[in-house]
């Protein structure tokens, strides 16, 4: 990290550590929108970290965005910060001015006709709360008003809103954008991989801390080799996910990073399965209670690993491409990226 990135990391982690309390997360899980925190994130420009300065953003790179996204995951911020970062970036890429209010991204069967967007978008993050949604339709980036959308509320395992939105001739702006057809899924996978890296860092730190506090048989359980070995695995999985996410973000400055993004999402998925299991095992029964906050991170990882394409989905496409290039092309390809 460079100096500015260190400052960014300190400030965003400091802010979220202070604001994202257990009460805030619990009330969000009960359906309360954390308006004050959202306003603060917007006021601090964190949702616009990827927007060029000329368009009123922070002019950050994806490496900068990774810092914000990892922090969002680490502190399990219960609002669509990652979705807003992505939506603002897509709008900026398309040259569409971003509106005020909550922004989210939408995937679904959507059609654009005469400047109106219609169709159904499923499992839209915070669809109920968003004033506008960003979607890719054909080669166009679309910004649609969600004013008149009908909302069928739903949640994921982490009790984050994942709503079905039905739009009928919603007012929309659109512009062609030079992004791959699956860009929303691709960059969605990237932001989730970054959040997962942050959540895994939290799991490692929290579980080590717990093992140092919890005493059984007359000593902290972290003094037992069986526990130490498990914690070492947990920490290495978190580290692997962190660098895979960083690598994907760094690769974007060279252009196409679809390969590295798939790598990051697959790696984050695999790490999550291992790490959540160890974190719960080490925490014992207390970690299985709602009262203890461990599950705020583990339930998110269980949801996020499947969102925007599970590891299996990305692995299949990565594998097909690898096999199609041929066995002897694997190493030259990996080293040329």
């Amino acid at each position: 990290m460079n100096e500015l990135q260190t400052i960014l990391a300190d400030s965003v982690n400091g802010l979220l550590a202070e604001r994202v309390t257990k009460n805030l997360i619990q009330s969000a899980e009960d359906g309360v929108w954390p308006e004050a925190l959202w306003s603060e994130l917007e006021a601090n420009g964190l949702t616009r970290v990827l927007v060029p300065e000329a368009q009123g953003g922070a002019g950050g790179t994806w490496a900068d965005a990774a810092i914000v996204l990892k922090a969002a995951g680490r502190h399990v911020a219960p609002l669509p910060l990652a979705e807003a970062v992505l939506a603002h970036w897509l709008l900026a890429e398309a040259g569409i001015a971003a509106p005020d209010g909550v922004l989210t991204v939408m995937e679904g069967d959507l059609t654009l006709s005469a400047g109106k967007l219609s169709g159904t978008a499923r499992r839209v993050p915070w669809g109920r709360q968003a004033a506008h949604g960003v979607a890719l339709v054909g080669g166009n980036l679309v910004l649609a008003s969600l004013d008149g959308a009908s909302v069928a509320p739903d949640i994921n395992v982490a009790r984050e809103p994942r709503d079905t939105l039905t739009l009928k001739d919603a007012a929309a702006q659109s512009a062609p954008v030079a992004l791959p057809e699956n860009a929303l899924r691709l960059y969605g996978a990237l932001v989730r991989a970054c959040q997962m890296a942050g959540a895994l860092d939290y799991l490692a730190a929290q579980t080590v801390a717990y093992a140092n506090e919890r005493t059984q048989f007359g000593k902290p359980i972290g003094k037992f080799q069986a526990i130490q070995q498990q914690l070492a695995v947990l920490a290495t999985q978190a580290a692997a996910t962190g660098i895979a996410a960083d690598h994907a973000c760094a690769s974007l400055k060279k252009g196409d990073a679809a390969f590295e993004i798939a790598v990051a999402k697959i790696r984050a998925d695999d790490a999550s399965s291992i790490a959540t299991s160890i974190a719960h095992q080490v925490h014992g029964a207390i970690g299985f209670t709602y009262e203890h906050g461990l599950h705020f991170a583990t339930r998110r990882l269980w949801s996020w690993r499947a969102e925007f394409g599970a590891g299996a989905e990305w692995a299949e496409s990565l594998g097909r491409e690898t096999i199609a290039r041929g066995a002897d092309a694997l190493w030259p390809y990996v080293t040329a990226r």
């Binding site: 690598h247 692995a315 594998g319």
Partner: peptide
């Protein structure tokens, strides 16, 4: 041979290979 199962397996291995190389 082709097939989805083999592709998924190779994709996973590639993801781990690339990550280990970065580490």
């Amino acid at each position: 041979r082709g097939g989805a199962e083999g592709a998924r397996e190779i994709g996973r291995l590639v993801a781990h290979l690339v990550t280990l190389r970065q580490m």
